[in-house]
């Protein structure tokens, strides 16, 4: 555990809680991609199956349970409790174009050809692109609520901090996981355009709106 890993995890947790609170307090999931949230629930489910097979630490187990619990709670709020506010017409990204290639790639390129390891690999690859339906939705509507941009910023920051964590671990522990690193770089790069808009607009007090 190093400072980048810890702040990365906390940033991830902050993102998840910001989104849950936003939906709960406003009683609305307008502007939120339910498809991205389903993908994240799938990511956590396939990655954390090792909860049943190996114990790493109390911290590790607690965070996994919180992430999974919050992911399903978010999906429940969007598709059940506040379904009437869900903007399905704008959430039109075709997720099969992500899930099918990612599934194929995880069978082809993995550390070990075993069911749990393939599912872990699938979750890593899927996480790297799971935000695309949300970014697609924002590009379609041309705007995002400020609280939604805070959510996205924390979510992008989390993976960027993990990149520093991996650099740290490579130098001080000789540890590297090529699958996680490459997918993490892809994931972080997908946020770069958003990071730019966040810094130049949202942090200066303006709403995030894209030019028509």
């Amino acid at each position: 555990m190093n400072i980048f890993r810890l702040t990365g995890d906390l940033s991830h947790l902050a993102a998840i809680i910001i989104l849950l609170l936003k939906i709960w307090k406003s009683r609305s999931c307008a502007g939120i991609s339910g498809k991205s949230q389903i993908l994240f629930a799938l990511v956590f489910t396939t990655r954390y199956l090792d909860l049943f097979t190996s114990f790493i630490s109390l911290y590790n187990t607690c965070m996994k349970l919180i992430y999974i619990g919050c992911a399903y709670a978010t999906v429940y709020l969007i598709y059940a409790k506040f379904r009437a506010t869900y903007d399905g017409n704008h959430d039109s990204f075709r997720v099969e174009f992500l899930v099918v290639p990612v599934g194929g790639l995880s069978v082809l390129i993995n550390h070990d050809f075993s069911p749990l390891e393939i599912l872990w690999t699938f979750s890593i690859y899927l996480e790297s692109v799971a935000i695309l339906p949300q970014l697609f939705m924002i590009s379609k509507t041309g705007e995002a609520e400020t609280i939604t941009t805070h959510y996205l910023f924390c979510l992008g920051l989390y993976r960027a901090l993990y990149l520093f964590n991996w650099i740290w671990r490579f130098y001080f522990e000789g540890f590297f996981d090529m699958i996680a690193i490459v997918a993490g770089v892809v994931q972080t790069v997908l946020y770069c355009d958003f990071f730019y808009l966040y810094v130049t607009k949202v942090l200066k007090g303006k709403k995030l709106s894209l030019p028509a």
């Binding site: 991830h12 090792d50 190996s54 790493i56 630490s57 590790n60 550390h111 390891e117 964590n165 996680a180």
Partner: peptide
């Protein structure tokens, strides 16, 4: 590579 006991990252 990965640890023997799985992945410690979240």
């Amino acid at each position: 590579g990965t640890d023997d006991d799985g992945h410690d990252e979240l």
